[in-house]
Design a protein around this nucleic acid. Structure first.
Length: 466
RNA sequence: GGCCCCAUCGUCUAGUGGCCUAGGACGUCAGGUUCUCAUCCUGAAGAUCGCGGGUUCAAAUCCCACUGGGGUCACCA
């Protein structure tokens, strides 16, 4: 029975990297009738952010990556919030002390800083063994007791067998990690091992930045006697900035809500993310979440850190927009508009009625929802014709004359007028666009003018020519 | 700096010893369709598979060293 999990900490906005992890965890579990769990790792009181947990759920819901067990959903292994499981961590920490695998240490933070600085100055890896171990107190933090020169192995599903030693001839390689803090909360290392074990996690999928600390986790599994059902670890590549460093707010967009504000579709983002480190067996570029779930296997993940390429995401998003029905697109744009657009009611009343037609015209011309409104400014009620040169005025006059003569107002008759005028004034299309929309290009002009209607067009011309 | 991970077009990638004079996608450029733009269609440029050694009849594919990039070294996760 496959059981996977994500373990976000409620310390801010939901990170796109978390969604990347979620996608793999979710897809692997779902594809095998397994269980996908969300566990909230709120063991750091200092970094806790009110409301961050709800934002995580909101993000999961937006992406349709719904969990089976979590604080909000409950489940057999509740509670799923680490701050509500302190007694468990304390119990195991004390057991480790009793078994002589861990020890109390009451070095003050100031003293530790001092030691750390000294060791860094000497270019040594900080290690607390020997400084604290003799103290043998019954208070303070609890540290893991690392035995030098021990070797351990574990299996990384992405990279194969991983070996490490606790020390080499020169220096320790794994330090006496704190597992229980002085406030009684566990550190990540203890909490993740205890919870993954108790929650029967079978596949631990997480970012590559965890590889170094996996050593500590493996040691904990051994000390606790749980090595037999240690989960299989899968360390996924890290999403990168264009400069190849770990994706960060400074160089890229990490906040999930940014993508929502920019008008990206969750399905497109997921599809894009699936390409990072994984390839469709038929090298298909576009596939649904369901299809991904049915095909995905953790063992197919590549270990190479991909650069998060917004350009390709944008293209993919455009493809998704084009595949939507006009009705769905209308709905999506309205939702987007009500959430993110200021000028909600500035559409011309006729344009409001014919909104679906406008959307149909724009569908192949936008890649994100955000591009929609700037593209249809000619339909705003305060929109007007813009005449900047003498030629513009002459063209506008011709338009007025010709349009007035039109008995039938439709895109064909309008186009004929436009063609004649282009010829008469020896101008090119972009000039007309600029007059009507202020931009050199945009939605098809005859269709746009048809939608606006003869009275509106004529009155705008009249106004502009005054 | 120590330890660890990684290395194919600008980017995402296919490739698991012969089908590779390295395939696809985005992007770029050119052409077609067309009322502008976009969509759509066609085509082109673009990687001596980081570098150097091996192993082999045969290597992008296996091994070693080097170089480069990344991660990590908290009472944060």
């Amino acid at each position: 029975m496959v059981r996977t999990r994500i373990a976000p900490s409620p310390t801010g906005f939901p990170h796109i990297g978390t969604i990347y992890q979620t996608l793999f965890n979710y897809a692997f579990a779902k594809g095998r009738e397994g269980t996908f769990i969300v566990r909230i790792e709120d063991t750091d009181r200092a970094r806790f952010v009110e409301g961050a947990e709800d934002k995580i759920y909101a993000a999961l819901d937006w992406f349709s990556l719904t969990e089976n067990e979590s604080p909000r959903k409950g489940g057999e292994f509740a509670p799923y919030k680490q701050s509500e499981r302190l007694d468990l961590y304390q119990k195991y920490a004390k057991q480790l002390v009793e078994d002589n695998h861990a020890y109390y240490c009451d070095c003050t933070p100031e003293r530790l800083d001092e030691m750390r600085k000294k060791m860094q100055a000497e270019k040594r890896t900080p290690m607390y063994d020997g400084h604290c171990r003799e103290l043998r107190k019954t208070s303070g933090v609890i540290r893991l007791k690392i035995i030098p020169k021990q070797s351990y192995t574990w299996i990384d599903g992405v990279r194969g067998e991983m070996k490490f030693e606790t020390s080499n001839d020169i220096q320790p390689l794994v330090d006496d990690q704190v597992i229980l803090k002085s406030d009684g909360f566990p550190t990540y290392h203890l909490a993740v091992v205890v919870d993954d074990h108790l929650m029967k996690i079978t596949h631990a999928v997480r970012g590559e930045e965890w590889i170094p600390s996996t050593a500590k986790h493996v040691i904990l599994y051994h000390y606790l006697g749980w090595e037999k059902d240690m989960p299989l670890f899968f360390h996924t590549p890290l999403l990168r900035n264009p400069d190849k460093s770990k994706l960060s707010k400074r160089h890229g967009h990490t906040d999930v809500t940014w993508y929502k504000e920019e008008g990206f579709l969750p399905q497109a983002i997921l599809n894009f993310l699936a390409h990072m480190g994984w390839t469709h067996p038929e090298e298909k570029e576009i596939f649904s979440l369901d299809e991904f779930v049915s095909l995905f296997d953790l063992k197919d993940i590549r270990a190479v850190g991909p650069i998060f390429d917004l350009t390709k995401l944008t293209w993919l998003n455009g493809m998704y927009i084009r595949e939507m029905s006009v009705q769905d697109l209308v709905k999506a744009l309205k939702t987007y508009q009500s959430e993110f657009c200021e000028k909600k009611d500035s559409l011309d009343s006729i344009a409001k009625e014919k909104f679906e037609e406008i959307v149909a015209l724009a569908q192949s011309r936008i890649s994100t929802f955000k591009e929609f409104y700037p593209m249809i400014t000619q339909f705003f009620s305060d929109s007007q014709f813009i005449l900047t040169t003498d030629t513009d005025r002459e063209v506008a006059k011709s338009l007025q004359e010709e349009f007035e003569k039109l008995k039938e107002w439709n895109k064909d008759t309008i186009l004929e007028v436009l063609r004649n005028i282009l010829k008469k004034h020896s101008i090119r299309m972009p000039i007309l666009y600029t007059i009507v929309t202020g931009q050199e290009r945009g939605l098809p002009l005859p269709e746009s003018l048809e939608i606006l209607g003869k009275p509106t067009v004529l009155s705008r011309l009249q106004k502009a020519l005054v």
